[in-house]
Design a protein around this nucleic acid. Structure first.
Lengths: 214, 214
DNA sequence: ACAAAAGTGTTTTTGTTACACCCATGT
DNA sequence: ACATGGGTGTAACAAAAACACTTTTGT
């Protein structure tokens, strides 16, 4: 009746960010290769606390949006040792450094979701599942705001949606829809970039909070 | 670094069925009181296999639709022993016996979701979460068919939707929508009940399979 | 003949999609 | 003056909601 024999409970986190029209995942160095951040859950620790702890320790990420994805059991991975993984995904704002330091020194680095290396067991499947979940949530929540910096333009927000969905959206329809959600407001400031009209900056009305639609 | 100390991994299952316009949950006897079916996962066992095993052993249910819901950790439940629960919900067809035998003898019994007893830790929350998930899936999948008997009338299917959603639906709009999904077909037979026109019987085109919409 | 649930279309309203031009800036 | 992305409204279409009467059976 005891299911506890040689059981290791771990978390894996899929940390997403958008960098230059690409959806990327932050991988952590583990021995020779790159893996999703994560590791065993400590005694008395909450699951999401463990996920946050490994994110911080292995990648330096803090204060991200975190959501439980799915729980996987690998019935017998290596000799007697059994592993159960609670998978999470995290959304990281675009201004978190995309990659710093020399490639060899980094303890973590971003890689595009469609260029994942042969990786941790099930790593690619977990990422694919997280990607699907994220894409479907765009339709009925304000979750994309968790990927934005504090201030952002509507075109930037649209580009985030387009990157996740893998399709282009109509500018006027997108703006109509987003503004109707009443989830963002103008800051009053403008973002000026060379060579064209400055864009209005917006911010989330309820930063950190994900609202559902309808 | 070892998260395995005194860790018990368990499953809990929320088995739903519709009985007479009520959404009910099947509880299993555990010592003095009634609990969601479930228990510790055996070594080398898949998570959903454990859920099915406990359902069968504690309630007699077999071959139900099963879906993972969420994973909960109770950081320290009783003295050192830690419990992590992978929650599932199950959908049971209406013809599974609603309750048989004398109340005192039963090893399991159905109870309406809005009349749950003070129960297992988090029992009511797990049921509520499962109920919300089920209700939202009605909008974009054919999941409700998993609650039906092999043959059923459109009015019965509509009643199942109404019971889960807690609101009445328009008969013509409901039929238009369901038939457009191309998930059910007429059997040719009629169900005749006293006192009114007989109803056409339908069956699922792909029983056991849940299709998604759009 | 009456009660009770089954069955059936059309109109109205709402939301979604498609679409093209002017604006403000930097060079 | 030109290149670049920012910003804006309307018409067509599709989907969802509202709505009432006839049919078939049992009593």
């Amino acid at each position: 009746m005891s299911g506890a024999a040689h059981l290791t409970l771990t978390t894996d986190v899929v940390p997403f960010a958008i960098h230059g029209e690409r959806l990327e995942v932050l991988l952590a160095r583990q021995a020779a290769d790159w893996r999703l951040p994560g590791g065993p859950i400590a005694a008395g620790e909450e699951l999401d606390a463990a996920a946050r702890r490994y994110l911080a320790a292995q990648t330096g990420l803090n204060d991200v949006y975190l959501e439980q994805l799915y729980t996987f059991a690998q019935p017998k991975r290596h000799a007697g040792q059994r592993m159960v993984t609670v998978a999470y995904f995290a959304l990281v704002s675009t201004d978190f450094p995309s990659d710093d330091g020399a490639p060899a020194d980094r303890q973590a680095h971003w890689i595009a979701v469609n260029e994942l290396p042969a990786q941790a067991p099930d790593g690619a499947e977990i990422v694919a599942l997280a990607h699907r979940r994220l894409a479907s949530k765009l339709a009925y929540s304000t979750i994309a705001l968790q990927l934005m910096t504090e201030h952002f333009t509507l075109s930037e927000l649209q580009a985030v949606h387009e990157t996740i969905l893998g399709e282009t959206l109509d500018k006027r329809n997108f703006r109509k829809r987003i503004l109707a959600l009443d989830c963002i407001e103008q800051t009053g400031a403008l973002e000026r970039r060379r060579g064209h009209r400055p864009a209005r900056l917006f911010r989330a009305k309820r930063p950190g909070q994900v609202d559902f639609i309808k």
